[in-house]
Design a protein around this nucleic acid. Sequence first.
DNA 1: CTATTCACATACGTTGCGTATGCCAATTGA
DNA 2: TCAATTGGCATACGCAACGTATGTGAATAG
Lengths: 202, 202
Amino acid sequence: MHKPRKEMIAETRAKLIAAARHAFGTTGYAEASMDDFTASAGLTRGALYHHFGDKKGLLQAVIAEIDGEMAARVNEVAARAPTRWLHFVDECTTYIEMALEPEIQRIMFRDGPAVLGDPAQWPNANACIASMTSHLTTLQEEGVVVSSLDPETASRLINGASSQAAQRIANSNDPEATSKKVVTAFKQLLEGLLRRPGPQPN
Amino acid sequence: MHKPRKEMIAETRAKLIAAARHAFGTTGYAEASMDDFTASAGLTRGALYHHFGDKKGLLQAVIAEIDGEMAARVNEVAARAPTRWLHFVDECTTYIEMALEPEIQRIMFRDGPAVLGDPAQWPNANACIASMTSHLTTLQEEGVVVSSLDPETASRLINGASSQAAQRIANSNDPEATSKKVVTAFKQLLEGLLRRPGPQPN
DNA sequence: CTATTCACATACGTTGCGTATGCCAATTGA
DNA sequence: TCAATTGGCATACGCAACGTATGTGAATAG
């Protein structure tokens, strides 16, 4: 017995996910041929259908993997940062930075929602949002952020803005410059969450 | 000569767009069969390819039409509202309301971006953003909004948040309640744009 | 050592897109 | 008024990709 059975199975699963992730991230979900990228992993569609049911199922698996990685990266940055509020801001900007990577942008923000629907309804891919939500809750309890808003709702809105932010930077012909503008505007929006001596609009 | 030629042509174009719009809005772009919805318009794919080149071209035409309608509706609401700032806020919330309609959500915010890429790069579908941008610019000149941010960038971010807002409401099992929460959070974010005696985060 | 399971491959049918081609009505010009 | 031509749209074909049904061989169980 050279290799245990379970190991081999897990290995092919991993190979399929890796191959699909690459294909989805570069070619795009709709344009990625299952025959092609399964072959690039030394397998056939037979394995794919056996493990994931269909193309969508494989996409879900890819998304779950990426989501886990993103959450890990956010939590990493989370540790440092002097104040809770700045911590939260860093969390958001880290999110934007990650969204700059073509693979993440394509799979998590474009093809994913188009194929699987509202990300908020995804079963196993909301680690980042959960983290942001809990931090927002704490900030509310500490009186830093206005208490009138629902944390998860706010997180989702910020998330939407982040995704736009990333796209704007990514598609710019001068990413450096636009990055500055985008992050400035983004932080400005975030300040709306802060509790403060209320100024009135006129 | 019962009907002028040009009229007939425009008519088939309109029929194709209408049929596609309905199919894309309900079935979804990828799942909508060109044979099916051209047949439902009493035509064939021949007409489609003649007028729009391919499926994507037809989607572009549909999007251009919807964008025009959305801009018109926003401008309608634009007229009233006591102050410029509230006008701007109304503009945003109207945008959210429109994004609640399944057809708009599906075509403009999900399938559209997935198939055609970043909406900011769409040639003929940015009327709403343009309107918001110009209003933001005016508000800056009047000193209502902080001057440090780029108007179009801010518009895009808000746009992203709006789309998330709409999705959250649309997918809720209690749309009334979540609508309140979402709009509250959204307006809170918008306040971040207001110029005010600066409070410091701690 | 036999039987059974199951991971994965192969083979097939179906669907849907894009292109090449054909046809017929409407315009154009003399 | 009558050819000639344009072009709007349909028909026919080929191809690629998905999903399913079936087959096979190796590992495990009894």
